[in-house]
Design a protein around this nucleic acid. Structure first.
Length: 873
RNA sequence: GCCCGGAUGGUGAAAUCGGUAGACACAAGGGACUUAAAAUCCCUCGGCGAAAGCUAUGCGGGUUCGAGUCCCGCUCCGGGCACCA
């Protein structure tokens, strides 16, 4: 056995061993319990980053732990291979996205292998391969047949210079990222998946997901956003050349029907038919509407922008009072939510209040809350409260929120212009992307037959892999060989759809494909039934809503099509915190941020080492900094490669687990890695130092007799078994940082232990065997090698997980904390099985108690068994 | 702006059910070994104080014998906001 710990050598040897044994290739085996452990697959951006190392180490720890617990463990890996960065790289380097992507996959796969993850590589998949995306297309066609997919108009960011659609990410301060041109909103056709049809089930089934963090379920519930309210119409006789607009009804939705008597205006979206009609003879309004159409599509921008409006000059009729109500166009009203119109009740809605104050619209209080006086001076929290009663509301006066809503809904319903309605915040999922590097939408456009689905036997529609996007629109639009096709209905020349699918489609079902046998004839097969559902899913908290919601939806669609028999894909979810690092930037005049690498700058720090400023090495100019997620675009990623090369995979893995609990954000710091490596060196030299003794001991049928141990060895053994108990508890909580520290404590104890007797060697043999096994999921290479070298066995993978021995844990005496009036004043030692009154007596008699009680009688003595005694006097 | 989290020494963090705050590490300082360095090992290490002790878990209140942990009100930081993945 080598004296020196040489991670490079032992890690490649261990990896070769696992490779040659095919240790991690698994098959369905109904006789054994299965554990499907899935980490979110990476986007092949070029190199692994620290977030990946963190994510996959967590998954690997859980996989290896469960394997030693006796489970049949599946841990697959693949590539979320379609997406925008490949096109950006193509624009920059003139390399086809396909080549860039496949090259990145090759490199990153080798990186993953060097980290020693227990992955079944025989199930590797990449979403950009036709064998995979064929089934995106196939399922999309089934959704079309069932009416789950439909074609309607969508609003996109349009760059008028490049004549191309931009992602939100490519719009910086309202301008195109490459051209700097003001971005416009444009309506174009696209496909939507009716996720709203599943809203009720997606919401309800959250209750079944006991293994999900509450906060994720809460976020999803809020996102789905079920609200019960009233949809009703303001009537009018506004007509254009086609007759009454909207049949003389302007529909609105409100959750506050109880405030209907306080309506003093209505607001409609810029795209609303009444707005368009009013703009015809009103150039100022037409200009305002154009301006609204320029604005951002993003909800955050909508919510923070200045609320503006302009009157249309039109009025509609209040459904209950019959009074005329002015109609305004508001830039904050969304055509895509509800009916694109809202009622304005300034007295009881904060936004309406601000709007009314700004434009001098009357404010009419119609809800009163006891002991509060209404004033128009400033908005008060209680104005929006549902706790009050109707007021100034005629027949509804005195009714509380619920009674008022019921009464008003009933009256509106009687007039035939309103009803109670459930409204969802969730919108349908627009899946069309005007991009090249994605899964082609399998549709053919024929002048005669319209939009025709590609027949199943012509799937997949294969994406040509040699295009190089240049930023001026989808290159598929110029590919005659892709575009031109005969119409499947009439046989006449037709054109293929050039839109591709949202990449969230790719990631909505990959877990099911891993679990099946990659058949060319079916999306999923019977093997899926054994492995699914995923027992443990691990990924970044940033996916808490969209990816997870789309996957849940997709699963339910597959179930309705009879493809799978489960209703939820992921039983347990671990949302790892993000890995953060400082990012340094300057703000150029055109807007946006220019990021610099830390190597390009000089840092200024205060006496405590906190960063106070930064300057660019090149010209000394000042930089701003922010603590943010590691990302390619921010030049603040730390490449794990150098870490692996310098210290080895085990050190990188140990440090990642030790640095913070998995759910917490992890602020990157180079320091600390050294400590992890030092620990592994100590483990190695401890093993090396005892190699001869341990080899002699291991292997026999001998069982350590704990009753004959001298005190120091009994204490050591007790300490290690106690640490094992804690480590097992923490593994159950998925708190791996304290598992790592338990291992460190075990080694600390072992190093201090006496080692000069045969009995000592026996205890150390048992304890070190525990330590190696607890450590093995985190640092598998060193644990594997020491296990073998010391003769514990051939395969630590095949060893069973250690459990603490109760007899080793007992102790005769315990030390209790002594408090007087809640303050720590000392300690009392008592026999472990002392009664409450014995403990009280011992505490009261102690020197510290006498001293701090200052002669006062004890009014109360609180005894917490095994913990403390508190004397109140 | 809205929804969801988080905040504990110089740093990362621990504290299982409301019961010794700072385990385990990193950094720093001191020492041993060494011709020297590296490595390794030992000691100190929240603040104030000579000590007794006091004080301390982002800020301000509250509940409790006892609060990092529970409640109310803030501040700052992170994630998401539907075309980044």
């Amino acid at each position: 056995m080598q004296e020196k710990y040489t991670p490079a050598a032992i890690e490649s040897a261990a990896q070769q061993h696992w490779d040659s044994q095919r240790s991690f290739e698994v098959a369905a085996d109904p006789s054994r319990p299965k554990y499907y452990c899935l980490s979110m697959f990476p986007y092949p951006s070029g190199k692994l980053h620290m977030g990946h190392v963190r994510n996959y180490t967590i998954g690997d720890v859980l996989s290896r732990f469960h394997r030693m617990k006796g489970y049949n463990v599946l841990q697959p890996m693949g590539w979320d291979a379609f997406g925008l960065p490949a096109e950006n790289a193509a624009i920059k380097n003139k390399v086809p996205p396909a080549k860039w992507t496949y090259d990145n996959i090759d490199y990153m796969k080798q990186q993953l292998k060097s980290l020693g993850f227990a992955i079944d590589w025989s199930r590797e998949l990449a979403t950009c391969t036709p064998e995979y995306y064929k089934w995106n297309q196939w399922l999309f066609l089934r959704m079309l047949e069932k009416g789950i997919a439909e074609r309607k108009t969508q609003v996109v960011n349009w760059d008028p210079v490049d004549q191309t659609v931009l992602a939100n990410e490519q719009v910086i301060d309202g301008r195109g990222w490459r051209t700097g041109a003001l971005v416009e909103k444009r309506e174009i056709p696209g496909y939507y998946l009716k996720i709203t049809d599943y809203a009720e089930e997606l919401l309800g089934d959250l209750n079944e997901l006991e293994g999900w963090p509450e906060r994720v379920k809460l976020m999803q519930a809020n996102w789905i956003g079920k609200s019960t309210g009233v949809r009703f119409a303001f009537t009018h006789d506004i007509a254009d050349e086609n007759g009454l607009i909207g049949d003389g009804h302007m529909w609105v939705f409100t959750t506050r029907a109880d405030t209907i008597m306080g309506v003093t205006f209505c607001a409609v979206a810029a795209e609303h038919p009444l707005a368009s009609h009013a703009a015809k003879n009103n150039p100022e309004l037409a200009a305002f509407i154009e301006k609204c159409k320029l604005g951002s599509m993003m909800e955050a921008d909508m919510a923070t922008m200045e609320k503006e409006g302009l009157p249309t000059g039109l009025s509609v009729t209040h459904p209950l009072t019959g009074e005329p109500v002015e109609v305004w166009v508001g830039n904050y009203v969304l055509m895509s939510y509800g009916d694109g119109a809202v009622m304005g009740v300034p007295a009881h809605d904060e936004r309406d209040f601000a709007f009314a104050k700004k434009y001098g619209i009357p404010i009419k209080q119609v809800v009163a809350v006891a002991d509060n006086a209404y004033s128009l001076d400033a908005w008060q929290e209680w104005y929006g409260s549902k706790d009050g009663v109707c007021f100034h509301s005629g027949k509804y006066d005195g009714l509380g929120y619920e009674a008022a809503v019921e009464a008003i809904a009933a009256d509106l319903s009687a007039k035939g212009i309103g009803e109670k309605k459930i409204q969802w915040r969730l919108r349908d999922w627009g899946v069309s992307r005007q991009r090249y590097w994605g899964c082609p939408i399998p549709i053919i456009h024929c002048d005669d037959c319209g939009s025709v689905p590609v027949p199943d036997d012509q799937l997949p529609v294969v994406l040509p892999e040699d295009c190089v996007p240049d930023g001026s629109g989808n290159p598929l639009g110029k590919r005659e060989d892709f575009l031109n096709v005969d119409c499947p209905c009439c046989g006449k020349p037709a054109k293929r759809e050039t839109d591709t699918m949202d990449t969230f489609v790719d990631s909505s079902w990959y877990y099911a494909r891993y679990a099946s046998t990659f058949s060319a004839d079916s999306m999923v097969d019977t093997e899926t039934g054994y492995w699914m559902t995923v027992d443990q899913y691990i990924g970044g908290i940033e996916h808490a809503i969209l990816h997870l919601l789309y996957s849940r939806f997709w699963t339910k669609v597959m179930r309705d099509l009879g493809l799978v028999n489960y209703r939820e894909p992921f039983a347990h979810l671990l949302t790892q915190g993000m890995v953060l690092n400082n990012a340094f930037f300057q703000k150029p005049e055109g807007g946006g941020k220019n990021y610099f690498w830390e190597s390009e700058i000089d840092l200024q720090r205060d006496a405590k080492g906190q960063i106070t400023g930064a300057t660019l090495k090149a010209d000394g100019s000042a930089l701003e900094h922010e603590l943010t997620t590691m990302s390619k675009s921010k030049n603040n990623g730390v490449d794990p490669q150098s870490l692996i090369e310098q210290y080895g995979a085990d050190t990188a893995r140990f440090f990642m687990m030790f640095a913070a609990p998995p759910e917490q954000t992890l602020e990157w710091s180079d320091a600390g890695v050294e400590g992890a490596h030092r620990f592994l060196r100590r483990i190695w030299s401890f093993g090396h130092g005892f190699a001869a003794e341990l080899r002699g001991l291991i292997g026999g049928e001998r069982q350590l007799d704990g009753t004959k141990l001298p005190d120091d060895l009994a204490t050591l053994r007790r300490e290690v078994h106690l640490l094992l108990k804690q480590a097992n508890y923490d593994l159950g909580k998925q708190q791996f940082n304290t598992v790592a520290s338990a291992c460190m404590k075990m080694l600390n104890a072992l190093e201090k232990a006496p080692r000069d007797t045969a009995l000592a060697a026996e205890v150390i043999e048992e304890c070190f065997g525990i330590l190696l096994r607890v450590l093995s999921p985190i640092t598998p290479h060193i644990a594997h090698t020491l296990w073998q070298e010391l003769g514990y066995g051939d395969e630590i993978l095949a060893a069973s997980w250690p459990e603490p021995i109760d007899a080793a844990l007992v102790q005769d005496e315990v030390e209790l904390v002594l408090q007087v009036n809640g303050k720590l004043r000392g300690a009392v030692r008592v026999a472990a099985e002392s009664s409450r009154s014995d403990i009280e007596a011992a505490a009261l008699a102690s020197e510290a108690a006498v001293r701090f009680m200052e002669g006062k009688p004890a009014r109360k003595v609180i005894v917490v068994p095994g913990r403390l005694v508190n004397i109140v006097c």
